[in-house]
Write a protein that binds this DNA or RNA. Structure first.
Lengths: 225, 225
DNA sequence: CGGTGTGTTGAGGCACATCAAGCCAGGTGG
DNA sequence: CCACCTGGCTTGATGTGCCTCAACACACCG
């Protein structure tokens, strides 16, 4: 199993851009700058152009669950109804394009077949959340971390040939995404490095040394421990 | 937090029924009869008329994750794209109405504003899956079970005044839904009964004796243990 | 130089899984 | 009618994976 982003716009021709000025709605966020908060009235959704954002919920007792990371080409804030359902802020300096709800609705009225596409997009989000559910409740810490790293690696085509890949989120973010503590994340990353599966050359990056092994660990292959 | 069904059609006037014969597409399922399987080409979605169905995934290693239960008024199989993303079968004798994809698409072309509604429906599904994720990774066994029972109780208006409520799924199903073992489910149900929060008069039913206490346990109230 | 934020490592405890019995209701055949 | 089986559920004993608490390493910065 692999974790997809909450939604991807890679393969679409951003059909909602029909009537919008070519550079309209672009916004630059600094690290930790908030894009929207849970409960805010929805103004539309956002396409990440560069950098990355994280979407999360914070609970009364302080627990935090990161629901998704979105990178360049992904969209975030889609399908939330009247109010956003979680907080969203930038991991580092990030550029996003805002797609206002009005332009989406107009596009949908003009081209009803677009609705179908959007429905599929929404379906993809559901599938992603299902995968996350399974990851969170059926997988061991090592499986979760391996799955996460696999997903990160897959986002960089050809990035598995030994070069450093970006890992823009800190350990706390990974822990809060995978439902673990930072200590457990750290321990298992160290263990993966000791096993020769990955390398950790510097903060904010990692290297896949043995992709096949990583995949086996992610899939919970019985023969590997 | 409360667990919603994967989607509810309670408040809609089933707008997709526009051009369909009044009793069209109704199908009766026996216990454990399969509605659709993961990978099957999508023919449309289903509205549960009576009884209940469960939607689940089975993994290579035999682990099973129940993704949702759907009761009378809920819909299942919506927004799956080209192929269904999980298996779905009946808990007991169940009546469903099949809503073919074609009729949905036709309705959407005729009334573009319907797309908006459906998008919201899909958004609701995402929200539900998020809640499930959080339930599965942030809550203790007792919190999960209390949350589950709360949800079951809430589905029967006024059903919290001491009368027996249906609990149509067996312990294994509950365990596979909550990411626990049947032993843990059983132990905590027994404990809830010992605490006077619920009663378990017979198989397939339960009684809420102390709704407020159950809610506190579900919310993980620190003061209650 | 100390201070702070991020990550690593170690020791110990606990919640839940695992393994194993036993209980109970319903069904079936003698 | 009883004897026996079966499936669902409960209960007990034991193990273990991850969390908790704690200390330390390291980079960065004023």
């Amino acid at each position: 199993m692999q974790l997809s982003p909450i939604a991807s716009a890679h393969d679409t021709q951003t059909p909602w851009m029909g009537g919008v000025a070519s550079n309209g709605g672009v916004r630059v966020l600094d690290a930790h700058e908030v894009l929207f908060r849970e409960g805010d009235e929805t103004s539309g959704f956002y396409e990440v152009l560069s950098g990355a954002v994280r979407a999360y919920k914070i609970f009364a007792d302080g627990r935090r669950q990161i629901v998704s990371f979105a990178f360049a080409g992904d969209i975030v804030g889609f399908g939330h109804g009247e109010a956003y359902r979680f907080d969203c802020d930038a991991l580092g300096t990030t550029r996003v394009r805002a797609v206002p709800k009005s332009s989406l609705l107009r596009a949908m009225r003009e081209r009803p077949e677009l609705g179908e596409k959007l429905l599929e997009l929404a379906g993809g989000q559901v599938a992603t959340m299902q995968d996350l559910s399974i990851l969170l409740c059926r997988k061991s810490a090592m499986e979760r971390i391996a799955t996460f790293l696999m997903t990160m690696a897959m986002r960089h085509p050809g990035g598995t040939a030994g070069q450093a890949l970006p890992l823009p989120m800190c350990r706390v973010d990974i822990a809060d995404y995978l439902g673990l503590t930072i200590e457990t994340v750290s321990r298992n990353m160290t263990r993966l490095r000791a096993m020769g599966v990955i390398d950790l050359p510097a903060r904010g990056s990692f290297v896949v040394r043995d992709l096949e092994r990583l995949r086996e660990l992610a899939d919970g292959d019985e023969t590997v421990h």
